[in-house]
Computed example of a mutant assay.
Amino acid sequence: MGAMTASLPGPAPDSPALRASHAERDAVIERLQDAAVEGRIDFAELDVRVERALGAKEQAELALLVADLPPVAGAEPGEPVVLNGGMAGIVRKGAWTVPASLTVNAGMGGAVLDFTRVTTRLPEVEIRVKAKMGGVVVVVPEGWAVDTDRMDPDMGGVRDRTAEGRRAPGTPLIRLVGSAGMGGVVVRHPSLRERRKLRRELES
């Protein structure tokens, strides 16, 4: 197989120019390495694509590099996880292992699920929400897709503050189902302060 050419499909003209993250670059590079092992691209082409992935500034550039490859199949779903907020609440953040199925009982203290340091090859993650009094906050990186259509807003409501746009390559669909209860559910991207903190951690 020859080197990559300009024949790969490009992004839609009206798609937002979202910036690429370290995790998204890593996911694309891993997919390219798998494709080389599978014989879909040769190793010379792998080198070219990996170099471009490392230098990619936008998600559209990364999407172009894997546009002619089939999606990854067979990612391990892991055991379902149940998180109970109880009276004190619960926070899951950092580089934690994400299962395909996750149940959150927010209780009185609430729950925070922070996916900004997560790398997963799962195509979809279902979060079953029982917000009750404490509420649930879900923080996802830019480019991740979130579906709240199956959430019952109840009294607390569901507020999805993530920007609509193209789902970045190598990222899962986060599907929320259940009830927002009294505390409600908020889905958002990291705040400016959180992004600065994450950048310092990655550079240290």
Rank of each mutant, 00 (worst) to 15 (best):
K197Q: 08
R188P: 06
R92T: 12
L8P: 02
E58F: 05
M108K: 07
L122V: 03
L83D: 07
V91S: 06
M182N: 08
E142N: 15
P141G: 01
L65Y: 05
L54N: 10
E201V: 12
R25V: 00
V50D: 09
D160N: 13
T119L: 10
L62A: 04
N84V: 08
G184D: 05
T103H: 02
M151E: 14
A12M: 10
L83R: 09
V66Y: 03
R200Y: 15
L46C: 12
R188W: 15
V28W: 00
V112R: 11
R117S: 14
L32E: 03
P11S: 04
L176F: 09
V91K: 14
D14L: 05
Q59Y: 02
G157W: 04
L176H: 04
A36F: 10
P169E: 02
W144N: 00
A106E: 02
I29H: 00
L202Q: 11
P123F: 00
D68W: 12
E45W: 03
R19T: 15
M4P: 11
R92D: 08
P16H: 10
V28G: 01
G156R: 03
A44C: 14
E201C: 13
E38D: 12
E126G: 14
R52T: 14
R117L: 11
R150Y: 12
A23N: 04
G134D: 02
D47C: 10
S7P: 12
T103V: 07
K132F: 15
A36G: 09
D34F: 10
T97G: 13
A100F: 03
G156I: 06
L8Q: 06
